[in-house]
Structure formats: structure tokens, C-alpha cells
């Protein structure tokens, strides 16, 4: 039967019935999605458009804004401080994300082992830093890594090693900050990877064991392979977090010494703190574009692997 025949044989009545459906039923789907759409418009679309418009103005938050065209963007793209903030975030990303993925994956594999006693306790312990208020942890970091009175330098001194200016030297401030971020968020990474590991059927490992695969072989050929999408999700999430990192440098180093820990997120805040809302808006859009590009790159990489 051809499609033409189908159309000819299809009675017209049902179509008319569809048109006659009560309007309430036709509207129902729209009503159901309306709360989300309203909230999305109010808290996502509106701020986005507002900020985009603001990025072409000079405005301190009071009185009329002054239209400056692309000036805020050209200023930022020619600014050493802007590129330096991106560079700082990139270095922090290198110090944090690869290390975190490896450490969290190993920890997740260990915590996923059914033979491990007190698994629940260890899982809880791993998550404690993540649920501890960041500012409290940052204050502890300041004390522990104080170059004169901190516990870390005391320990170094006790074993005859030289003291290090952990938070006040341009060389060490970033690694110290990265360590804080790792300490704070690796528990979250472990939870994410654990959920990925638990979705791998046990039968896959049983089959591998029957085939004589070693533990290492299983880890590389099964575990890593099957959780790679979860790993990618984690990498994208942590990339966003690192490029938006604000509270850690704000509390621990205030972006110093000499701007060496001024992250992209903190640099953005500095514009807003000076009521330079136009430049801040342009900065946020450049940051969004960059993070989107990086995220797309990761997604593309994964697709190619698939």
C-alpha cells in the first residue's frame, strides 16, 4: 500500500476530532513546562541577555550606562592581567585535574571492592572535606602553611629541610592552592567515579577472571574503558570549577603574591568589586566562550575514541 493510498483511506473524522479536542488538553503540556520556562527565563535567559548588553557599556551600577561598543572586549584581549589570570587557571588545571582523576579513580576502585572492611566508613571519610565549609578549610590552610609558624614548615625543619614560603612566593602559591582544591573536592570526584564503577556489571569482571586477566589488566581494559564517560563528565565539571575558582584564592592568598594566584574567576570579581560592570560582563562572556570551547574539545575527543 502506498502512502497516497493510506492518506486516501484514512477517514477525515479523526482529524476533525483532534481539532475539536478541548483546548485545556492541548494546553496542558505547555502549562506543565511553564514553571520551568518562567524560571529559566527569569534566572538564566534574562541575566544572560542583560549581561551581554552590559558588556558593551561602561556602567558603575548607577545612572545611565555609556555605550562603548567592543571597547571592553578589546581592552581585555589586550590586557596582560586578563591573560595572566587565564594562564594561572590553566596552570591550576594542570596541577589539579589530571592528579585528581588518577587519585580519585584509584580510591574509587579500592572503595568499590566488596572485600574491603568498613567501606562505608572510608567512603564517609573521603567525603568529609567536600561537605566542610570552604572558608573554614581555607583558614586552616593559611595557618598550616604559614611560612613562619605553620605546621608544614615545622615538619620540614624537623627533618632538616629548608622552610618554604608556601603562600607568599610566586613559585609555591599555586601548588599550595591546588592542594587545597584537591583536598576539598576529591571526595566529590570519588563519589562520581564510584557511581560509574557500580554501573559495570560484575559478570564482565567474572568473565575476565575466567579468561585469566590480571587485576591490572582488568583495571586498564575494563574499569578505565567502561568509566571513561564518567571520567569525561568529571573532567568537564572540574574544568568549569577550576576556571571559575574564586573563594580559595580570595580567602587564602587574595590573588597574590603579585597576581600569581589571581584566577579567571577572581579577576572577573575584581572588575565587579570596582563597580566596573561593563568590563566584568565582557570578561564573563569571554570566560564562558573559553570554557565552552574547552568542554567541546573534551566531548569531541571522547567521540573520536568511541
Amino acid at each position: 500500500m502506498t502512502s497516497t493510498e493510506m492518506r486516501e483511506r484514512t477517514p477525515a473524522a479523526p482529524a476533525r476530532r483532534r481539532r475539536r479536542r478541548p483546548s485545556g488538553r492541548r494546553l496542558a503540556p505547555y502549562v506543565f513546562v511553564l514553571p520551568f520556562v518562567a524560571l529559566f527565563l527569569a534566572f538564566s535567559v534574562y541575566p544572560l541577555i542583560y549581561t551581554f548588553r552590559l558588556s558593551f557599556t561602561a556602567w558603575s551600577g548607577s545612572g545611565p550606562a555609556r555605550w562603548v561598543g567592543w571597547d571592553n572586549y578589546t581592552y581585555l584581549l589586550g590586557s596582560d592581567a586578563f591573560w595572566s589570570s587565564l594562564g594561572n587557571s590553566a596552570v591550576l588545571w594542570l596541577l589539579i585535574v589530571p592528579v585528581q582523576v588518577v587519585v580519585a579513580l584509584i580510591a574509587a576502585v579500592l572503595l568499590n571492592n566488596a572485600k574491603l572492611r568498613m567501606r562505608g566508613f572510608y567512603r564517609t571519610v573521603a567525603l568529609v572535606p567536600f561537605v566542610t565549609p570552604l572558608v573554614a578549610m581555607a583558614q586552616i590552610w593559611i595557618v598550616v602553611f604559614d611560612s613562619d609558624y605553620g605546621a608544614v614548615n615545622r615538619l620540614l625543619g624537623a627533618v632538616g629541610l629548608p622552610e618554604i614560603d608556601w603562600l607568599t612566593s610566586t613559585v609555591w602559591a599555586k601548588p599550595t592552592l591546588a592542594l587545597l582544591f584537591l583536598w576539598k573536592t576529591t571526595g566529590f570526584a570519588i563519589v562520581i567515579l564510584l557511581s560509574g564503577l557500580q554501573s559495570i556489571p560484575a559478570s564482565v569482571y567474572e568473565a575476565a577472571e575466567l579468561d585469566g586477566a590480571s587485576r591490572t589488566r582488568q583495571l586498564v581494559s575494563i574499569t578505565v574503558l567502561l568509566v571513561r564517560r564518567v571520567v569525561l563528565f568529571l573532567v568537564v565539571m572540574q574544568t568549569l570549577a577550576v576556571f571559575q575558582m574564586f573563594a580559595e584564592p580570595y580567602v587564602v592568598t587574595a590573588g597574590g603574591p603579585y597576581g600569581s594566584t589571581t584566577t579567571a574567576g577572581l579577576y572577573l570579581y575584581e572588575h565587579l568589586g570596582r563597580s566596573d560592570l561593563g568590563t566584568g560582563s565582557a570578561n564573563s562572556f569571554l570566560l564562558v566562550a573559553l570554557v565552552m570551547l574547552v568542554s567541546l574539545l573534551f566531548v569531541r575527543l571522547l567521540r573520536e575514541r568511541d
Binding site: I49, Y50, R53, W59, S60, G63, P64, A65, R66
Partner: peptide
């Protein structure tokens, strides 16, 4: 239309070089 309406809700924008600097 929504985007245009929303965009219009921002601050008044002027091309006057003196505006926005203490009026």
C-alpha cells in the same frame, strides 16, 4: 520578542561620554 523585551529591561544606555560618570 522575549529577548528584545528582556534586553530592554537593562540600564538606560546613552552614547553621551559624560553619562555614567556621576550625573
Amino acid at each position: 520578542l522575549t529577548a528584545v523585551v528582556l534586553a530592554a529591561c537593562g540600564p538606560e544606555v546613552s552614547s553621551d561620554a559624560e553619562s555614567g560618570a556621576g550625573d
